[in-house]
């Protein structure tokens, strides 16, 4: 009996050593550990042993089987974990499933950015129609008929009384007619100029105008507000200047330039906005007493500011809507 046991144990060890995969393992399990396996057979033989020999061989048999089982489990674990490892492989370098977030047009983004500066200073935001009356676009704003001031803006007239607005100022007129001071608002929107389309000018562009009418509104406050704006858009150390100018609807009027220094090129002054104190005639036209109230107004071209900021040299790229452009912002 002892010999039989050691034979089985020996062949088990030898065969186990040659097992490399699950199939081999399964073959061994069936050969040794199944109901008709070699170990079961040994136990059957054991049953037939004389009683006095049973304790001795029983111990040996149990011990041998337990050892075999232990070795078998060890190998099984090894093979299983090896298999699991190979199943786990994921090529994380593969490109992910593509998703696209769209965008707002660069002009919308710029309007939003500028608006947020002024909203932070307590300005409301108003809009208005793009087809306007001559009255709202020119006359109420102190442009006399047949005055050279009208030459400053090439207008798309529809007839004698209607036109495509040349600035968002008519919304100021609407606001001042419809509400009482204090009025503190900015007005973004599309405006139109009847000019030939070129790299520098397009037949439409976007403007943001501001208006503040209250008691004790001063030029010093206008200047301070616009310097705050310039610092927020162009950085805290922006170099600026206020330059006397002429607009029919403001007096005194000024234009604001910022010093633009492109890397490696010659710096220059670039005009970014026009501003001034609301002309008393304009206040009178809308029924506000210019002795009691004063106001300031300012206006800027959104395209100009965006082009400067992003280094665009041709305004038309903003209206070509080429996907290769749109996806950059």
């Amino acid at each position: 009996m002892e010999q039989k046991i050691s034979e089985v144990a020996g062949s088990f060890k030898a065969e186990l050593n040659n097992v490399k995969d699950e199939t081999g393992l399964e073959a061994i399990r069936i050969k040794y550990f199944s109901r008709n396996g070699l170990f079961s057979k040994l136990f059957e033989d054991f049953k037939n042993l004389p009683k006095d020999q049973k304790p001795k061989y029983g111990k040996l048999l149990n011990k041998t089987k337990a050892e075999a089982q232990k070795e078998f489990d060890l190998l099984k674990n090894k093979i299983n974990s090896r298999k699991k490892q190979s199943q786990k492989f994921v090529d994380l370098s593969l490109p992910g499933r593509k998703k696209t977030v769209g965008s707002q047009h660069l002009i919308s983004q710029t309007i939003k950015k500028i608006s947020s500066v002024f909203k932070g200073l307590g300005f409301s935001v108003y809009t208005g129609p793009e087809i306007e009356s001559d009255e709202n676009n020119f006359e109420a704003l102190n442009f006399p008929p047949d005055h050279p001031a009208r030459d400053m803006q090439d207008t798309f007239f529809i007839n004698d009384n209607f036109l495509l607005r040349t600035h968002t100022s008519p919304v100021q007129i609407r606001l001042m007619r419809e509400t009482n001071p204090p009025i503190r608002a900015i007005i973004p929107g599309k405006v139109y100029r009847n000019e030939a389309i070129s790299a520098k000018s397009y037949c439409l562009f976007h403007q943001i105008e501001g208006l503040y009418v209250d008691t004790n509104v001063t030029f010093a406050e206008l200047k301070s507000t616009l310097v705050y704006f310039a610092k927020n858009i162009y950085g805290n150390d922006v170099k600026y200047r206020f330059r006397s100018s002429f607009f029919p609807f403001t007096e005194p009027s000024a234009e604001v330039d910022v010093w633009w220094q492109p890397p490696g090129k010659e710096g220059k002054w670039l005009e970014i906005l026009g501003c001034g104190m609301v002309d008393p005639n304009v206040l009178q036209n809308v029924g506000i007493d210019p002795e009691k109230y004063t106001g300031y107004a300012f206006g800027m071209g959104v395209e100009r500011i965006a082009m400067l900021k992003y280094g665009l040299s041709d305004i038309r790229i903003l209206f070509d809507n080429d996907k290769r452009f749109l996806t950059q912002f």
Partner: peptide
């Protein structure tokens, strides 16, 4: 215009704000 001093604070009318572009 350069000689017009900057004010350190500005006044803000405290009426309710509107945003028609919202």
């Amino acid at each position: 215009f350069d000689k017009i001093p900057l004010t350190e604070r500005i006044s803000v009318a405290l009426n309710a704000k509107v945003d028609q572009t919202d």
